[in-house]
Amino acid sequence: MSMCGWVCLVTGASRGVGKGIALQLSGAGATVYITGRQEEALNRTAAEVKERGGACVPVICDSTKDKDIEDLIERIRREQKGRLDLLVNNAYAGVQDIFDNLGKKFWEIDPSIWDSINNTGLRGHYFFSVYASRLMVAQGRGLIINISSIGGLQYLFNVAYGVGKAACDRMAADMAMELRSRGVASVSVWPGAVQTEMVNKLILAENVSPAVEPTTKRLFAQGESLELAGKCIVGLAKDKDLMALTGRTLMTCDLARRYGVKEDDGRSIVDYSSVRFMLSQVPALAWLAPYVPAFLRVPHFVLALASSRI
């Protein structure tokens, strides 16, 4: 119960990574407000939190509706006497559209996919951050986390997805510049391939679409559990050197190593910056991967430089 007394808000927590984060934060003792658009699914998450002995407040909230966001933050201010310690911007609405359009070029896709992907998963994050920051700045402490992905660094899925994730990373970095002096940290967190409910349905099922490449299916077959990111975020929230990390983009595999986080079933966590993993993704070189020590990693600045456009 190391986060006893904390007040947290996790958006998009009715399923997937958001649900896993809410379960872990509440398990650490925090009071967690969770949002979602579907009442039944949201209440299932809340029921699971309570079954584990945690404190959870489910709130129907559409991240594309500004009034919903403003009203929720005002409710937290009122109910928690102005306290909000942690915001996790996780809500996302474009997964089905992404998988429905796998393999298509941006000019072949209805341009409204931009709104499907980025209204909730980018614009909503900004609005939540603005209102949450007002509480955090007033109390002189807090942490804002944008859930993003490696799609912000290199091409993944489609143009709208990559632009949105790159913007989430940049948002976290730029907010950190303005929040640092007020004692509030802002970071972007990249989970790896996560075995969410949608992934199990759209990628790992036996009747998977032929548009899903075998390499993608293999990657998710060894993917992270729903709650790994939550375990990492609990460690991050309690980190005594948190302000040294503000503004950065952090991988869950790195956070897991930093905080000694393990998967409950004992399986290893894929280290996406390891030389072994990178070799395993190149068919001609995959045979070398088992012979490379697991501790050999490519420095993150090299990954950034490799994707630099300057």
Score class of each variant (00 low, 15 high):
Tyr259Thr: 13
Ala289Phe: 04
Gly53Thr: 07
Ile21Asn: 02
Gln24Thr: 09
Gly82Glu: 00
Val159His: 10
Val302Ala: 13
Arg276Pro: 07
Ala211Thr: 00
Ser133Asn: 12
Met278Ser: 06
Ala160Arg: 03
Asp264Val: 14
Met171Gly: 03
Ala160Pro: 09
Phe277Pro: 06
Ile310Asp: 01
Leu236Val: 05
Gln222Cys: 04
Lys19Met: 09
Phe277Lys: 11
Leu296Gln: 03
Arg257Leu: 10
Leu236Cys: 09
Val10Asn: 07
Leu303His: 12
His125Ser: 12
Ala284Cys: 13
Arg123Ile: 09
His300Ile: 01
Ser274Gly: 09
Leu86Arg: 00
Ala286Tyr: 05
Tyr272Met: 08
Met1Arg: 15
Val59Pro: 03
Ala93Val: 05
Ile60Trp: 02
Thr216Arg: 00
Val184Thr: 10
Asp68His: 15
Ile98Lys: 07
Val49Trp: 01
Tyr126Val: 08
Ala166Ile: 01
Asn207Trp: 02
Val261Leu: 06
Met177Cys: 11
Leu156Gln: 15
Arg180Ala: 12
Gln24Arg: 13
Ala41Lys: 08
Ile144Met: 05
Leu42Thr: 02
Ala193Pro: 11
Ala306Met: 10
Ser63Arg: 00
Met251Thr: 00
Ala30Asp: 03
Leu9His: 08
Lys201Ser: 13
Asp239Pro: 01
Gly230Cys: 11
Pro111Trp: 11
Arg75Trp: 08
Leu25Lys: 09
Leu87Gly: 12
Gln222Leu: 02
Leu296Thr: 06
Gly82Val: 08
Arg258Cys: 00
Ser307Ala: 15
Ile147Trp: 01
Met175Tyr: 13
Ser181Trp: 05
Gly29Leu: 11
Gly29Arg: 08
Arg15Lys: 10
Cys61Asp: 13
Val194Phe: 08
Asp66Gly: 10
Lys201Met: 01
Asn89Arg: 04
Leu23Asp: 01
Ala172His: 09
Val137Thr: 14
Val270Leu: 06
Gln222Lys: 10
Ile117Trp: 06
Ser268Tyr: 00
Gln80Lys: 15
Leu303Ser: 10
Ile113Val: 14
Val199Asp: 02
Asn90Ala: 03
Ser133Arg: 10
Arg297His: 15
Arg276Asn: 01
Leu228Trp: 04
Thr252His: 11
Gly29Ser: 12
Ala306Ser: 07
Gly5Glu: 03
Gly27Ser: 10
Cys168Val: 13
Cys8Thr: 13
Thr196Asp: 04
Leu228Cys: 06
Lys238Ser: 09
Ile73Gln: 04
Arg257Trp: 02
Phe301Val: 15
Asp71Glu: 15
Val292Lys: 08
Ala211His: 04
Ala138Ser: 06
Gly140Ser: 09
Ile60Val: 12
Gly27Trp: 08
Gly152Pro: 11
Ala167Glu: 05
Leu23Met: 12
Leu72Asp: 07
Gly164Gln: 12
Lys238Gly: 10
Thr31Leu: 15
Gly5Met: 05
Asn89Lys: 01
